[in-house]
Each structure stands twice: as structure tokens, then as C-alpha cells.
């Protein structure tokens, strides 16, 4: 058994010794690691090919800013280069890289001025009466929201609403629902339990759904 390029977090077999003639693209992440430790240029090329877009996309999702995302990508690559020797393989390579990326993005977010205010997520979660029935000030959903979602008209707004999530929720939500990592990968990358990931994900999903609904009923004012 070995770790695949997507890093499922499965236990890796000991990497096979490989010579210069073996195409790096044919190797698993686990097999690339010793070559990266040996500063093999082709192995680094392959690592970039596999991860640069994923890191950039994740960084952009987290920072909501192309310049910051490029800086995060560069920092993440530098960190991999500097610290690969201390990578023990306790997590998959991909998890390790996502953790580095999330940390670099968080540092950027913390360094920002407080002009980008997060919204209180609780304001957008469903309310219930004593009998457990939902109470809503607005009708529940509108076909216009479906249409806008299907026609991708809400892309820019969805990005903005996600950017207004508190960082703890945004990290989980972007990694899981936007970038498609598994709950286990997100948990490992962020040092959270899987139930904690699911709990944040759940609240973030309900928040986003509510923002889309209120946008339609609010005539674009939300």
C-alpha cells in the first residue's frame, strides 16, 4: 500500500530506491520524498507539477487575494525546500503541504488590518421554536436562487460571503467544499478532530445557504 498523489493519508510502503532514469511522474508521493531530500531537481519539478495549482487555489480561497496567494505559494515552496529533511512521513506528503499552506495563509490573514470584518455566523443559522420547528423571517427558499446558482451568477458573491466567514470556519470550508479535500485530510492538515471539521463545515454550509437566500429576498442589498 502506498500514498497516492492526492495524499489519502494511507500508510505508505517504504519508498523504492530509484535511479535517474525513472520518470518522476511515475512515482508516488512517498517515493518522491527521498529524492526531494536528496535535492533531486526532477523530483522538485514533479512536486510543483502536482501541487502548485492546488496550493495556489487553496491559498486564494483562504486569502481571497491573488497577491497574497502568490506569496503563500512561494512561502509554502520555500518551507518544503527548507524542511523536507525533517519530514518523517507520519502524515502523507500532501497533508504536510496543505498544513504548511494553511499556516502561511493564516499568518497573512493575521497580518492584515481589520478592514475585512468577519460576520457573526450565528446570525445566519436557522432558528427554531420550542417544539423544534424552524422559524424564519423570510420564506425559505426561492427558485430564483436555484437559477442564479445554476447559471453561476453568484460566483463573485459566493466568494465574498466565504471571505466574510471567520477564519476558523473559512479554512475548513474552503479546504473541504471548495478544494475538495476529504474530512480526514482537512482534520490532519489543521490538527483538528474529524467531528470538529464536520461541525464547522455544517455551520459554514448553513451560513452560505442563508446568505444566498437573503440576497435574493433582499434585492441584492445583503
Amino acid at each position: 500500500m502506498e500514498t497516492d498523489a492526492m495524499g489519502t493519508g494511507r500508510t505508505a510502503e517504504l519508498p523504492l530506491p530509484v535511479g535517474r532514469s525513472v520518470p518522476r511522474s511515475a512515482l508516488s508521493d512517498a517515493q518522491l520524498v527521498p529524492l526531494l531530500k536528496a535535492a533531486d531537481e526532477a523530483a522538485y519539478e514533479e512536486l510543483l507539477r502536482r501541487y502548485e495549482t492546488k496550493i495556489f487555489s487553496l491559498a486564494r480561497g483562504l486569502t481571497r487575494n491573488d497577491t497574497d496567494a502568490q506569496d503563500v505559494l512561494q512561502e509554502a515552496c520555500l518551507s518544503v525546500f527548507k524542511h523536507i529533511k525533517s519530514f518523517k512521513g507520519q502524515s502523507s506528503l500532501s497533508t504536510w503541504i496543505y498544513r504548511i499552506t494553511a499556516n502561511a495563509a493564516l499568518m497573512r490573514l493575521r497580518g492584515r488590518k481589520k478592514d475585512e470584518r468577519s460576520v457573526p455566523i450565528d446570525d445566519y443559522l436557522p432558528q427554531f421554536d420550542d417544539t423544534g420547528h424552524r422559524v424564519a423571517a423570510l420564506p425559505d427558499w426561492h427558485p430564483a436562487v436555484d437559477e442564479m446558482l445554476l447559471n453561476k451568477e453568484l460566483g463573485g458573491l459566493l466568494r465574498r460571503w466565504i471571505s466574510e466567514l471567520e477564519p476558523d470556519y473559512r479554512l475548513v470550508f474552503v479546504m473541504r467544499d471548495q478544494e475538495g479535500l476529504s474530512n480526514e485530510e482537512v482534520a490532519a492538515a489543521l490538527n483538528l478532530s474529524v467531528p470538529a471539521v464536520k461541525s464547522r463545515l455544517h455551520r459554514a454550509r448553513l451560513y452560505l445557504r442563508e446568505r444566498a437566500k437573503r440576497y435574493v429576498y433582499g434585492g441584492g442589498g445583503d
Binding site: 502548485e52 480561497g61 427558499w141 446558482l149 459566493l158 466565504i162 467544499d177 471548495q178
Partner: peptide, 20 residues
């Protein structure tokens, strides 16, 4: 409600960027 969460989620997965 369930369907609306599913649809929102599907729209979010479209936001993944691939253009470095």
C-alpha cells in the same frame, strides 16, 4: 432545505481555481 444546501455546495465546488 436539504436540497438548497446541496445546490449551494455544488456551486461552491465550481469556485475552485485552476489558473496559476
Amino acid at each position: 432545505f436539504l436540497e438548497s444546501v446541496r445546490k449551494t455546495r455544488a456551486a461552491v465546488s465550481e469556485l475552485r481555481s485552476s489558473d496559476l
